[in-house]
C-alpha cells in the first residue's frame, strides 16, 4: 500500500497539481498496487506509514505565509527527517520554494522555509516579468545516470538561487529557477523540487514511475514496476517538446 500525503491539498492546488496526484494513483492502480491519498492540512502532522510519497503543491502568496508558519514547528522538522531518511517528496512551485531556506514575498516579508534544499527565493524586481511558458529540461535519471527530457509549464514571479544543492535538471528551453543560470529545480536524495507544475507527472510518466518505484523500494528492496503502455503520454510529451527549441 502506497500512501500519497497531499500537503495542503485544499489550499495549494493552483495550476492543476491534482494532475500529479491522479497520475501517481492511476499508475499504481493499473498495476494493482493499492493507493491511499491522505490530505494533510494546516495544523495536522505528517504521519509516514513506511511506504510514502509526499506531494507539496503551489499556492498564492497569502497561503504561502500561512504555510510557512505551519511548517515552522515540528511539521517542518518531521519533513526534514523524512527526506534524510530517504523518503520521497515532490515540491512544485510554491511548495518547492518553501522547501528552501527562505522565500521573500513581493511585499518584502521573509518567510522561513523547511530547509530541505540549500536554496533561497527572491521576488521579481519591478522591471522583471513573471517567468511563464513551456519548459524543456534535461534530467539525469538517478539510477541509470541516463539523461532524459522532461516538459512542463512554469509560471512564477520568484527567482530561486541554489546554494550547495544539485539542480533537478538543466534548462533546454524556458527559464527554470531564475532565468539566468540555466538550472531548473533541486534534488537531494529522494526529494525533488521544481517549477514545472500541473501536468508535470502526466506527461513525464518515467518520472512518475521513478517516484513510485523509490517509495515502494523502501518497503521491499527487490520491488520492480511492471511497464505500462505509455503511447498516449508519449504523444502528449512530443506534441509539446517538438515545438520547443533544443528538443531531441
Amino acid at each position: 500500500m502506497l500512501t500519497i500525503h497531499h500537503l495542503y491539498a485544499d489550499m495549494m492546488n493552483l495550476y492543476g497539481d491534482r494532475g500529479n496526484v491522479i497520475s501517481i494513483r492511476k499508475r499504481c492502480e493499473w498495476r494493482g498496487i493499492p493507493v491511499e491519498v491522505v490530505d494533510v492540512g494546516l495544523g495536522e502532522r505528517v504521519r509516514p506509514t513506511g511506504c510514502d510519497l509526499f506531494l507539496f503543491g503551489g499556492g498564492q502568496d497569502r497561503e504561502q505565509a500561512l504555510l510557512a508558519d505551519d511548517l515552522s514547528g515540528s511539521k517542518g522538522a518531521d519533513l526534514r527527517a523524512v527526506v534524510e531518511d530517504g523518503g520521497v517528496v515532490l515540491g512544485v512551485c510554491g511548495g518547492y520554494q518553501l522547501m528552501g531556506h527562505s522565500y521573500l514575498t513581493p511585499e518584502g516579508e521573509k518567510l522561513p522555509g523547511v530547509g530541505i534544499f540549500d536554496l533561497h527565493t527572491e521576488p521579481r524586481k519591478p522591471d522583471e516579468a513573471r517567468l511563464i511558458g513551456n519548459v524543456l529540461v534535461d534530467v539525469e535519471a538517478p539510477e541509470t545516470a541516463e539523461v532524459r527530457q522532461v516538459v512542463g509549464f512554469e509560471n512564477h514571479g520568484g527567482r530561486t538561487y541554489l546554494g550547495d544543492c544539485e539542480p533537478l535538471g538543466r534548462v533546454i528551453s524556458g527559464y527554470g529557477n531564475n532565468g539566468k543560470d540555466g538550472t531548473e529545480g533541486a534534488r537531494r536524495l529522494n526529494a525533488y523540487g521544481t517549477y514545472l507544475h500541473g501536468s508535470l507527472l502526466p506527461k513525464n510518466p518515467w518520472l512518475t514511475d521513478q517516484l513510485i518505484h523509490s517509495a515502494l523500494r523502501r518497503e521491499d528492496e527487490s520491488f520492480e514496476l511492471q511497464p505500462l503502455d505509455d503511447t498516449a503520454e508519449r504523444r502528449a510529451f512530443e506534441s509539446v517538446s517538438a515545438q520547443l527549441p533544443g528538443h531531441r
Binding site: G19, I22, S23, P202, K203, A232, R235, E238, S239, V240
Partner: peptide, 23 residues
C-alpha cells in the same frame, strides 16, 4: 486542438474512453 494529446491523456487517467485524436 493543438493540445489534443494532453486532452487524450486526461481522459485516459479518468478511465474514460478516448475516440479519435485529431489535432
Amino acid at each position: 486542438g493543438l493540445r489534443a494529446n494532453d486532452m487524450a491523456v486526461r481522459l485516459k487517467y479518468a478511465d474514460l474512453p478516448v475516440g479519435p485524436v485529431i489535432p
